[in-house]
Each structure stands twice: as C-alpha cells, then as structure tokens.
Design a protein around this nucleic acid. Structure first.
Lengths: 336, 336
DNA sequence: ACGGGTTGCTTATACGTTTAAGCAAAGATA
DNA sequence: TATCTTTGCTTAAACGTATAAGCAACCCGT
C-alpha cells in the first residue's frame, strides 16, 4: 500500500497550515474567512495530489464513524437480502456505510457480533434479534447505544422496532383459507419462543375462533429449527392424514419445504389441498400453481429502520414501535 | 451514548501509566516485564470497568483496521448470499470484519463504493467487478491496495482472482444435453462484455463443435440485463418455434425466468424440452421436474478469496488465478 | 565500593484529523 | 493619531491508542 496523502502534505505543498486545509476541504472556507486564492490553491493541490481523507482519523476526532452495524439472523433468508438492500441504499443516502454480520440464529454469535460492532464504534445498530438475545438488548439499552430492532421484538423489552403486523397478517391468511371454503386448516410453524412467530400462532387461532372453527387447533404443527426438512415432511404427512383441505405455512422456508414434499405426493393444489404462505419466495414462481401469500414490505422496513436510527443518533429520544401492514398476493392456491 | 472507558481511566484507577495498561491488555506483560501483581490488578480493573478498546484509535495508530470491504454485484443473487456467508465466516476466523456494498451491476456505483471503502481504510477488498470497472481495478493496482476478484475477471488485467471454470462448466452442461440425445440445443445468455459469461458462450460453442453440431449456433439467444423478463420470454418462444429439444440457461436467474414461462406453456420437461442450468436456485425445488444444473463451489470461493487476501495483506506479492471445478447435479430434466 | 546488568515502571511522541484560541497586519472610526 | 474591527492566517491541543526511549532502583560479581 502506497503512502497516502495527508492534510499535512497538502499544507506543505501550498505553504499553509493544516488547519486552513482542513477548513477549506470541509467547505468552511468563507465561514472561516479563508482567502479566495488560497482556498482555490488548496483545492487544486488536494486534487492533483489525489487526497482522500482518512476516515479513521476523522472518526477518532469527531467520535462519529458514519457506520451502522446490521446483524441479520441468516444471510440466506429472503427477508435478509431484501431488507439489507433497502438498508444499504437508505444508509448511503445518509452518507453512512453498513457493516453486516450474520448471527445464524445463534445467540452467542449474536452477542459476539454486537461486541465486535460496538468496539468498531459503529454509530448505531440495526438488529434482527434471535432467541435468548434479550440480555444483549438490555445491555445496549443500559449503555445507551443507539439501535433499532427489525422483524422481531421482545414484548418484555421496550425498544424501537419496525416489523410487519404478524398477528393481523396471520389472521388474514387463515381467514382467506376459511373464506375460500376450507374447513380443516392446518398450520405449520416453528417451535420457538420468538414473539413474532407466536403472534402468527395467535393470528391463526383467533381467525379460527372468530369463524367457529376452534376445533381446528389440533391441526397446528410445530417443527424444530434444526430439523426443518424432516419435521415439515412429517407435519405435512400428518395433516394430510388428518384430512386437512388447506395448509397455512408460517414462513417462506417452511412453505418451500412443504411444497417440495407436496410436489412429490399425489396431491393437487388447490383441488386436493389449498395453500397460503406467510412471506414470499422466488421459488413460488416455479410451482405449477401460483401460491397465495402475504408479502412483507421489506423496502419500507429497511427504510424506516434507517431513518429511525438516524433520528436516534441525531436527536435522541425516539420512541417508535411500528407495525406495518403486509401485502396480500392472490394466487390460485386456494381455488379461483 | 455513555462515556466510554479508555486506557487512561484504567491507568488512573490502578495508579499506573497508560503504557503499562496497554502492554498488559495486549498480552505483552511478560515480554515487557510487568510485575505479576500489577498486571493482575490491571486486568481486574479492565474487567470491572468493562473496558472495550477503541478500535478506531487502535487503527489510527497501527494503520490496520482488520476490516475487509466486499463489493458484490447484486445482493439478491444466490451467488452473493452464498459467497458472502463464506467470506464472513472465514474473515471472522482471521479476526476481520466485513463491510458490504452492492454495486447493482452499475460501474459508477462500483467506483463510488471502492472509494468509500478505501477512505474507510479497509485493509483489503474482495470484489465482484462489473462491466466497465476496469479503470477502478487498474487504479487499485496502481495504488497497491490489496484486493482479490471473485466470480469475474478481466482477461486484459492481471490480478488475483478466484472463480469457477466457466468454459469447462458450460462445456459440460452442453455436452450433457448432447449425450442425453438432444439435437437442437438452445442457449440463453446475457448480452454483455463480461468475460466470465463470454466464457460460457465459448464452452457452449466448443461442445457443439466437438460433437458435430456446429449448426446449432443459431440457437443462441442474448438477453438484455435490464429486460430479463421480456427477453427471456421471447427467447424461449423463439427457441421452441425453431424446434429446439433442449435449452441451456447461462445463469440461475435466466433459468428461473425461463422455467416460469415454460410452466405456462404446453410443454413438458423433459419430454418436450430438456433443461440444464448453470448455477443452482432454491426455486428449482418447486419445479415439478428436478432440474439438472451445475453448482458453483461458493463456500470454497469465499474461503480461498479471504485467505488469498490475507496473504496479500500479510506477506505481499501473491499471484493467484484459481479456476475451480463446479459440481454437477443430476436432475431428471434431460430424461432419466 | 564500583560498574554493569536486570527489573519495573514512566515519559513522550506519533498516527491524521478538528477546532478553539491566538495573533499580526490592514482597514475603519473618531 | 490612537483605538477598534476585520481579515487571514498559525499554533496548539485533543481524540485513544501503541511504542520507543528513558530512568530509577535493585541485584550481582568482583
């Protein structure tokens, strides 16, 4: 790596002090009453010497890194790529860079990432918290480090967060199955304490209850995060055996796995089995029958998250809990 | 944000100089002959005060940020998520963090990202270069900034790079279609100057030639990056009209779009039309017929890229051009 | 008792910025 | 002419860390 040009070099080159150079290059020339010609000379020198400010030094002095840390749950989730893209773009507009980390749904990795990013002096964090990460969140609060939660939150911890309205969306999904004439509606969700997924449970149950199908509750299956494939397979088989005429998948990943197995069975969608999925997946496009599903407003979540974080960083004291409405994409997987 | 504990605070607390604290906390206690008890006291103080080193200050002093910049072409590509995950993990092992940026295949955005990351003093860059980014690459070389290219490279620029063997893989894909008895083999690829995609062309053509199907060349279609959907649709329609019995898709994205339209037509895979795809897509799992495809060794690419970059950063003067072999996943899309 | 080595610490400077404070020279005011 | 203001610059300190250099105090061998 070649030697880099510093303020000092420009100062020497022009024959002035570094202070002047700093003022000029930061656009504070007139405010600081720098002579027109000198200012011009400095700008020229910076140009010909190809000066690029050392952000590290700048940060040390200003105590601002213009960097936000983003910890996602898993980089392969569609949610992740969608929201990361939005965050990246919005952060860029605010002249911020994003440092990305993936916790892989593991709370100790999550804790370590928080640590690393805080040590790197990020100005703030955007987090998709994982199970058992409550203590980390509390720690961040205690140390007054700016952060906002997305996708998930903990009901017991008051924090800024942006997410889709999981209860309502799950309710709508279930209701759609009911309204299209299905009577025995299965539901497959993760076995987890994560609140946002529990809210999807609640939406499902509430919809059943409101439509007099309380007895359907036995059609709810839980799968283990570490055994998605086998558990989904088993669940689908059980639901079919129980005579279900519709299945509501709680996430895109569950849906993809479910459909994969349904593909292998003798069942036709929607004739034999109706399908609704929370979350969209690119893969749906290749299924013979367009899948009806809820679509999270990823762009919006990312955008609001960044702007909220900026507000926290700049003005302090923001209290924002936002539940966004999901879109609902009508396929043909519940009949016409 | 609360006041942070600095070396000075620990020094004061224990009643020693900051130098001593620095030595001890950097594990150079005995080397620097620090008294056992004092060292212990310092460690304790650091612990109770919950000291976390300011990486920014550290970086300024050491001229090392322990950060690598990663610029991907598009965050929604499967290649991206796979390789990012691997890079993240491998970088972590080396005690490095990753700053991610996405160029969205735009060379001016690419240039800007390079700029931002270099200003942030990243120790090195891992890049998926885009069209017309040659000058940026040259610039990096000129300034001796450590970098490695992945996925793509420019034949005219000598640089370290890791990628799959595009020619060979495309050759194999085409050959597979030929060997499974198909005579009129279409190929859909992007219209681009990107070398790695041109290599896929070359693989296709070479396979045709080697098997006496030179006249098949007219079955090659080009699509515009900005108009993937409509161009793929048109291409598939044309190929079918031309009587093709097999299609080789040059990327996962093209394949997904192609299959989407094939789904809507009256064609059965593989009876009416055989399919091979370069690259894997999760979506394939939902297609009624398992798609035969090449699979890039994403893990390996990421891992080697990081290690190569580490070598450049640490020992200088590495010259590594690696072409990895792709896996080949046999589906049923070319017949049994 | 004297020089020389060892032990255990402190002092001081530097990294590349930002920015408050200072200061000389010129112009304005009276 | 004496004083005040403005103009246009420089000086110096600071951010938190690393590290070379310095320096007492002690121990040892002679």
């Amino acid at each position: 790596m070649k030697k880099k040009i510093a303020l000092k070099d420009i100062a020497q080159h022009v024959g002035v002090s570094t202070a002047l150079v700093s003022y000029v290059l930061n656009g504070r020339a007139e405010e600081k009453r720098v002579g027109k010609e000198i200012a011009e000379k400095i700008r020229e020198a910076a140009d010909t010497l190809n000066y690029r400010p050392n952000q590290i030094a700048k940060s040390l002095k200003t105590n601002r890194t213009n960097t936000v840390g983003l910890i996602v749950a898993d980089i392969n989730y569609r949610f992740t790529s969608g929201v990361t893209r939005a965050i990246e773009a919005e952060a860029g507009k605010n002249n911020y860079t994003v440092i990305l980390g993936s916790s892989d749904e593991d709370h100790s990795k999550f804790a370590e990432l928080v640590n690393v990013l805080v040590n790197r002096q990020v100005d703030g964090l955007i987090l998709v918290p994982v199970e058992k990460s409550e203590s980390q969140i509390e720690w961040l609060k205690k140390h007054e480090i700016p952060f906002v939660l997305i996708d998930r939150n903990f009901p017991g911890i008051q924090a800024n967060h942006i997410a889709v309205d999981n209860f309502r969306t799950a309710y709508q999904c279930t209701q759609h199955l009911i309204k299209t004439g299905h009577k025995k509606i299965g539901f497959i969700n993760y076995k987890t304490t994560l609140y946002h997924l529990r809210e999807r449970d609640r939406g499902y149950f509430q919809a059943l209850e409101d439509h007099g199908l309380k007895n359907n509750s036995k059609f709810k299956k839980e799968i283990r995060e570490k055994h998605v494939q086998e558990d989904v397979l088993r669940s689908v088989q059980e639901l079919v055996a129980q005579g279900c005429d519709g299945i509501f998948f709680a996430t895109d990943i569950i849906a993809i796995n479910g459909l994969k197995y349904i593909n292998g069975m003798q069942l036709r969608v929607p004739e034999d089995l109706a399908i609704v999925s929370f979350d969209e997946a690119e893969a749906f496009e290749l299924f013979y029958c367009p899948i009806t599903h809820a679509r999270q407003p990823l762009e919006e979540i990312g955008k609001i998250a960044v702007n909220t974080l900026m507000d926290i960083i700049n003005h302090n004291q923001v209290n924002r809990q936002i539940y966004l409405e999901a879109g609902f994409v009508l396929g043909r997987s519940c009949g016409e």
